Simulated assay, not measured.
Amino acid sequence: MTFVESRSERIRPERFHGSAGVEDWRVVGEGACAYFRTGSFAVGARFVGAIGELPGAGGDHPDVDVRQDAVIVRLITVTDDYYGLTERHVELARRISAVARTLGMSADPSAVQTVQVTVDALEGPKVVAFWRALLGYQDRAHSGEDLMDPHRRGAPFYFQRMDVPRPQRNRIHIDVWVPYDQAEARIAAALAAGGRLLNDADAPSNWVLTDPEGNEACIGVAGPPCPGLA
């Protein structure tokens, strides 16, 4: 295996979080994300320009969202057969964090999250075809049950198969992906606001909650750090 091939090795969230120097970052449903507080749009613009000058940044295509007082950066590989992280993202995350420090910016991992819309469907292919056309989305890595915005703006859609109709329950629910160290606080806040815990069988990676009228939401996390992976 060449050096280039090894740096392109696909990795799981646990491997990313177990690496040194990525404390600013959290892996959520849409890749490794960091939220940097800039204090001004002008500083954020300089930060984005500096990211563009980093070696390898162009090849890894980071998604950058510039706001009035913050910049959100997302690292993820999107190909026909893969949607996730590689070893190269670890080093790029370190370099981006280093640039932020030189500009006096701080990261706020608690501000990271992504949202996914999940549709429960009896006839998956037909339902997927409708939403694919309506949203102008594309299949994600040939999954047949995941749709993504080709311009990477809108929330992804996931289609979950039902074996029998469930007329007594809603058939659309929201998946909220939060950092592993924010899940408990987010769940507690939702319960305090009148929600109800429906299912925690898959905790600590997933919890199902409902609002006071039974509409469902899933809180998901991706890979807390594991000792020995650095």
Rank of each mutant, 00 (worst) to 15 (best):
H142I: 07
A20R: 15
P167I: 10
G39N: 02
A50V: 00
R101W: 08
I219P: 01
D175N: 14
E23M: 02
E213T: 15
G21D: 06
D211I: 13
V117C: 12
N199R: 13
G18I: 07
V119F: 07
S205D: 11
D108P: 05
Q160A: 14
L191E: 01
I51A: 05
P225W: 07
F41I: 13
D65P: 02
A217R: 08
E14V: 11
R7G: 02
E53I: 00
W207M: 08
R46E: 15
E87H: 04
L122Y: 07
G29Q: 13
R161D: 12
G39W: 03
G52K: 05
V48M: 14
P165I: 00
S110Q: 07
A222V: 11
A222M: 14
P225T: 06
A107V: 05
V112L: 03
G220W: 05
D175M: 04
N199F: 05
P55C: 03
D200T: 01
R140L: 15
S110P: 04
A189P: 01
G39V: 03
V221Y: 07
I72W: 08
D175G: 11
S110D: 13
G195V: 06
Q113G: 08
L134Q: 09
V64Y: 06
R140W: 01
S6A: 14
A42K: 08
L54H: 12
V71I: 05
P227A: 12
A107Y: 06
A121D: 05
V73G: 11
T102Y: 04
E123C: 09
D60H: 11
T118K: 14
V99G: 03
I174C: 07
Y158N: 15
V78A: 09
V43M: 10
A155H: 07
D146S: 09
M105T: 01
L147P: 05
L197P: 01
V27D: 04
R169Q: 10
R161C: 10
S8I: 06
P62Q: 00
V48H: 09
D120A: 13
L85S: 05
D149K: 09
L54Q: 09
I172H: 09
I219Q: 10
I174F: 09
A93E: 02
V128S: 03
R88S: 13
Q168Y: 13
C218P: 05
G49Q: 13
R152G: 00
D80W: 00
C33K: 15
I172Y: 05
A107N: 03
A222S: 14
C218D: 13
T38P: 01
I76R: 08
V4C: 09
V128I: 14
I76Y: 03
V176C: 11
A193F: 11
E91D: 12
V127A: 12
G18K: 10
C218K: 01
A188K: 15
